[in-house]
Design a protein around this nucleic acid. Structure first.
Lengths: 195, 195, 195, 195
DNA sequence: TATGAATGAGTATTCATTCAT
DNA sequence: TATGAATGAATACTCATTCAT
């Protein structure tokens, strides 16, 4: 069990970072929201940046794990991709604040942003592998595996983000949208829109 | 003819904003890069925010115009969507710095970010209309028009951004990638990956 | 003529640094004492440290110049040393705040402190040269030139500092002590205490 | 027998204080270097300041004792002064870290600094007494006893400090310099530099 | 005695903005 | 129009000190 205080900090931090973005987020606000003193944050993390990186890495870790688990349940590329889509949508909707951070704070030239991107690239590479195996087995038919994988990641992420902003963080409504989004994405990505 | 100074400012501003993001971008840096005094920026723009909004709006305007023009060249929904995809990819690759800003600075809770999002929503709505007309004409076949439109926007944007970061701003290389990206997207979105 | 604002800053800074020492001195206090805004200090100096270094270097420069001028007025080593002593005492008494800083802030392991020490070493080396020439000419008689020079520097500085603290910064009283200090030092260093 | 922990703290504290000076020295660092928990320091000392004062007083005590012992071995003022010089040099070289602190932390306006100065003044007064007795006995010949005493203290301290910094804490080298320094000082202070 | 997690007052530094020239 | 010196509110971060265990 990780230290309780750190969990308090993490919980407060995701919210504050998600609402204001990294730069505008105030360490004071995180401390206040966590109900602890500002110094306590600095006792556990060397800097605002380190806290943020720890937070994001934990989120990315969880996301990747979550998807790996789902993927390993089957061998069939088609089924794997289906599960990836569903798992990804559920995870992102379920972690709306993290999702906002993910798409907001991974672009840019700072070192940490490059580090985040390389993890997302890992994720995209994973999809790429599934696509390649499917193509080899004659199940999938596609032009360029890596670019397609990136596009799929974009379609999923933005579809979810679009929903999150539309529902304005009402988590119940968002939950209700999950099947619709999964349905949309499966249809679009597997069959395309051609009749 | 717009004032020359303003162009100097705009050119410097896109670069600085794209490299550092809105918050970390310094007005000093913009002034220095533009080769003018800091005060001059404030002579032309009320604030850093106003400059940024003007910049983004000009970009969004151009982007939407560009796509409208392409779209109006044909009546067929399929051809329209094809043109939208191509135009969008070409525009984003051709305006890499703007593209980075687009996906970085539209999320968040600040007013200007909501304003940007509503313009992007306009763009998504436009795609939605095309999809709907295509569906009515029996040309397209899809689950949920709005969600599909958002997904398409995400696929296109992230595919381009992925390429931009992979080519590390080498504009020639990026240009060379354009057909590949368009090809990938057309295939994926029209036909899906099912064999 | 150097910028007037910088003079205001310098004047305030010596006092504050001398009273509190580098670490305890507050930039706020310097600004307040100078009658300017805190930001103005940072407009002219990159940091508290840079301001301090600029200050000390100016002081050291002045001190060394002052003494060089006095020294160049004669060829005789004995007369040169006599002038150095007198000039040094007058300068240090006349710049009491600087003197405190000199002996307080040159020791330590920080880079700037090493830089200051190397300038003081220059000063000691200068005395050493005079001693050597005097020895060669059979005028002086001493054991080890460099160590003797360092001792002379120590005798002068501490004698002055001792007086400064005894008179508690009453500048008139301090002025009155000048001849006594010079007399003491000349007697001690030229003739020793042996009867 | 003093508590072992306190010795650990003292040993660590001199080093840290000598390297960084009072203000920049961190209680954390002292605790780490002593291999104990930070709280333990506060169990034994009320504050960082109290620890520092205890440290300095112990050093000053030792120094004064050391010199008193040497002085009491003879009645002759000349021999007394000779012994004072030698004892002082040996002590300071042998306690290099303390010496740095001595000349760094005794100046300034804080209460503890004034307290330190008054002890140093005691030391100077002691020298003064020797000088006066020597003068009365016709052995010494000097201008102003108190100022001369201060100058002697300065000559000795700075000569030693100069050597410490030149040898960069290589204790063997420093030991080797002791006779040279004593020789230099005796010659300078007893006979002066006049041939 | 000893610990180390938690505290919060204290401060250097940044940077958008203003305004006299 | 253009300038750049001056401003001061805003904030990340430090570190001596406390206290429950």
């Amino acid at each position: 069990m990780r230290h309780e205080t750190i969990d308090l900090i993490f919980d407060a931090a995701v919210e504050v970072f998600a609402e204001y973005g990294f730069e505008r987020a105030k360490v004071d606000d995180i401390a206040m929201k966590a109900g602890i003193a500002k110094g306590t944050i600095y006792y556990h993390f060397k800097s605002k940046e380190e806290l943020f990186v720890a937070l994001m890495n934990e989120g990315l870790e969880k996301m990747l794990d979550h998807i790996h688990v789902e993927m390993d349940r089957t061998e069939s590329p088609r089924e794997q991709l289906r599960r990836i889509l569903a798992a990804q949508v559920r995870f992102l909707i379920g972690h709306g604040t993290f999702t906002k951070l993910l798409l907001t704070e991974v672009w840019g030239s700072k070192e940490r942003q490059q580090a985040f991107r390389s993890r997302i690239r890992q994720y995209i590479d994973m999809i790429e592998q599934v696509l390649r195996r499917g193509t080899e087995q004659g199940i999938f038919h596609l032009a360029h595996a890596n670019e397609t994988a990136a596009s799929i990641f974009g379609a999923v992420s933005v579809a979810v983000l679009h929903t999150i902003y539309r529902c304005q963080d009402q988590s119940e409504q968002m939950e209700a949208e999950i099947p619709k989004i999964i349905d949309t994405l499966e249809h679009l990505l597997f069959n395309g829109i051609n009749a």
